[in-house]
Design a protein around this nucleic acid. Structure first.
Lengths: 178, 178
DNA sequence: CAGCGATGGCTAATGCGATTAGCCTGAGCG
DNA sequence: CGCTCAGGCTAATCGCATTAGCCATCGCTG
């Protein structure tokens, strides 16, 4: 039995392929098959499905964070907020399965906390300049709108033909209006 | 073996109790136990867990629809939109487990379509008066914001102490601004 | 009132997915 | 060359959903 060259990170790669291939939620069996290995072997690298899901979530948050970072770099205030929102939605549209696999509430989970906080930090920077509670309110509005739109779109929730980009632009305009 | 007086509707009642009691996703075993019956007996009333989940979703959409209906009755335009948003969020806050159990995309599922469309129809009435695409854009913004905020809040996603009501009011103001 | 079919319980069995136990091999190091 | 052990594997266990097949009860009917 040749070694398969697995590792936690490699398994996350495989799991992402599996996610992208559709077919619903992750399963040990499906990941093992895609990795060319029998299910029990997975446990030599991760503690179980829950841990693997968490690692996958962390990876996705990381990727999302990098894109948000790149999109908002050097921008401030309304510009940063706009860029954040567009990059956030773009990620969800480009990777709907991955977006759906993200836990809504990463904070509090040891494996997800870091990546989740990074994303939140980028959002926080986009509402910089506002003082105290105003920043909190703006941040929450940003998160709610971004997450709500992304979720609905990633779930195929916008049935009509009307241009979804335009709808999003309108929403963004509302949110970042002076 | 005395009869337990079950029916699809009664099972939905039981499932809602189970949901409200926390403890994660529905399971046939838990529902059977709460109904005072062995698991296989459930299948005399519903086709399986998937159907029961759909019936539960339909019931929740129905309840939500009634509350939205009541809250928006007789109102128009911005007033209706405000009332819709507040009632929507209030439902999610009052029944976080139920809100989490709602499928994001009810349309297309035979058992959920009707109730889902009713809710959507109420939202549509709240953006009445806008013409064509404008109404669609406004409707999508309403859904995205309401769903995003409700989801985050029902998931315990707003950690800070800052008043969440105030955050929501700000968001609503942004959305229904003239 | 006995008889009867449908209804709605139950127990036992199946199947699938996650997980665990325990074996075995071969790669890398002394 | 031989040892160790990481990393495969097979076989077994467990927890659920689901199915098969049995039987009591209910409501009706002759």
């Amino acid at each position: 039995m040749p070694r398969a060259g697995l590792s936690p990170a490699a398994l996350v790669d495989v799991a992402l392929e599996e996610l992208d291939a559709g077919g619903g939620p992750l399963s040990i069996g499906a990941i093992a098959a895609r990795a060319g290995v029998k299910p029990p072997s997975i446990y030599k690298h991760v503690a179980g499905l829950a841990e693997l899901e968490a690692l996958v979530g962390a990876r996705i948050y990381d990727d999302l964070g990098h894109e948000l970072e790149a999109a908002t770099a050097g921008l401030e205030r309304a510009d940063a907020a706009r860029a954040f929102l567009h990059a956030y939605r773009a990620f969800a549209v480009r990777h709907p399965e991955r977006y759906r696999a993200l836990p809504v509430h990463p904070l509090g989970h040891p494996l997800l906390e870091a990546a989740g906080e990074r994303v939140l930090g980028i959002a926080a920077r986009a509402v910089d300049g506002l003082s105290g509670d105003d920043a909190i309110h703006a941040l929450r509005a940003l998160r709610a709108a971004a997450h709500g739109f992304a979720t609905l779109e990633a779930a195929g929730g916008f049935g009509l033909a009307t241009d979804v980009d335009a709808s999003f632009d309108r929403l963004v305009d509302r949110l970042v209006a002076p």
